[in-house]
Structure formats: structure tokens, C-alpha cells
């Protein structure tokens, strides 16, 4: 998945996978805090920036998300 993200110029560091049990609440909170901090350091994703620019110009290119075929 990280390799795929890199093909569309999205920093692979934005995605991480962790294995935790439901009993590891403190660990979960720590991971969320750390990853949020990392994402803040990396700044907005290129997709977010592109959508923001598109909306500013009045466009709406491809911001409809996953669409289903008829």
C-alpha cells in the first residue's frame, strides 16, 4: 500500500499499520498522538491541497470519492 501511495506522490509515511488488542487503550492513544504529530509535521496531503485549489477555482474535479458503476 505504501508503494502504491508513492506512485501518486503521497508520502508513504502518512500510512502506518499497528496490531493492538482491545485491552491496549493507552498504547492506542500514544500511537494516535504520535501519528497525528507526524502528519502535522508532514503538512496537508497533496490530495487535500489539490481539492482545495480546485474548489477555490470553482471546480470540483474528482472530489466525489468512490463511485459505483450503474
Amino acid at each position: 500500500m505504501k508503494k502504491l501511495l508513492e506512485t501518486v506522490n503521497i508520502d508513504a509515511e502518512r500510512l502506518e499499520m499497528f496490531n493492538l488488542s482491545a485491552a491496549e487503550g493507552p498504547k492506542w492513544a500514544e500511537i494516535c498522538t504520535d501519528l497525528t504529530q507526524k502528519i502535522r509535521t508532514l503538512g496537508p496531503s497533496p490530495i487535500y491541497v489539490a481539492l482545495r485549489e480546485s474548489r477555490k477555482k470553482g471546480g470540483g474535479a474528482n472530489d466525489r470519492g468512490q463511485t459505483k458503476t450503474p
Partner: peptide, 19 residues
């Protein structure tokens, strides 16, 4: 999904579906 992301980044309006 990847192509939609690419289209978004290049501000090209495309309806991309899969099946």
C-alpha cells in the same frame, strides 16, 4: 482510486469507476 487521486492532483475532471 489511484487514478482518481492522480486526476485530482492534475485538476482533470474524470469520472473513474471500476468493475
Amino acid at each position: 482510486s489511484l487514478l482518481r487521486m492522480r486526476a485530482t492532483q492534475e485538476n482533470i475532471s474524470m469520472d473513474i469507476r471500476s468493475s
